[in-house]
Nucleic acid binder design. Sequence first.
DNA 1: TGCAATCGCTTGCAAATGGCAAGTTATCTA
DNA 2: TAGATAACTTGCCATTTGCAAGCGATTGCA
Lengths: 144, 144
Amino acid sequence: MARQEQRSACPIACALDLLGDRWTLLVVRDMTLLGKTRFSEFLESPEGIATNVLSDRLQRLQDSGIVISGKDSEDGRRVLYAMTKMGLDLLPMMLELAVWGAKHRPQSGVPKELQERYLADKDQFLSELRERVKRSSSSILPAE
Amino acid sequence: MARQEQRSACPIACALDLLGDRWTLLVVRDMTLLGKTRFSEFLESPEGIATNVLSDRLQRLQDSGIVISGKDSEDGRRVLYAMTKMGLDLLPMMLELAVWGAKHRPQSGVPKELQERYLADKDQFLSELRERVKRSSSSILPAE
DNA sequence: TGCAATCGCTTGCAAATGGCAAGTTATCTA
DNA sequence: TAGATAACTTGCCATTTGCAAGCGATTGCA
């Protein structure tokens, strides 16, 4: 279950070649905003991704340099996943997508306080978030 | 070729329920950044969307309130498409996606000048773009 | 030391979606 | 009034997805 390709030279199209489907950005969300690091944690998200789709997406994200993985030193069965710098750079887009969803999809819910902090000072919010994610994954990174 | 559904209450997931596939955001790109308004114009984009997929996406975008359409008063064969306010609100996300693509997909190309103007003052760039898009579609809008 | 449980996948199969080419209908142009 | 054009629709086949079951490598427990 895999195949990739470039449809055009447009940066939006190139980004969508990697990220344009119903699941990939949910994995990115889990890994950044929700701090998840393991296969089984991603499976627990309420959207219910299938195991074969999840392993396919994790592989693609690694192939394209957005995610890296390594074995858990404390439990050899486990594999830990983390975002690379390239992956962290997706945060601004993810947050704007979240803002749009929160504004226009009435059935969605976000903590108001969070959204207001973001809208009040986007850059500040972003750099705090970057730091938090970077720190939480720094222990995992086998090498970048 | 159609069906929709909500997978969770997360605003990102809700947004992806509508926008999460390889084609939808390319149509949005054509309609906003490239100023296209007609079926045949969307078909001309280099990515080569299929006609059945295009008409499905245009329908979904209308169903969800992101796009509206109306007959061309000068040529009854033609249908004109335009973004609603809800659709215009996708611009910040689209631009961040473009920035990411331009930075991390080496095979993609954007006018450097454009990108620098955006990065220098995002809000200014955005409001100019909003105005431009709104104006170019104002003649189309049957009613909003 | 053995044995069940856990973790991260892979496999098989049916159903949904996408790509391509060939219509179809309404409108316009000559 | 004939032919071209615009926007779709339809049919067919290939690819992708969703779901359930299985598998091999640890690990924790008796």
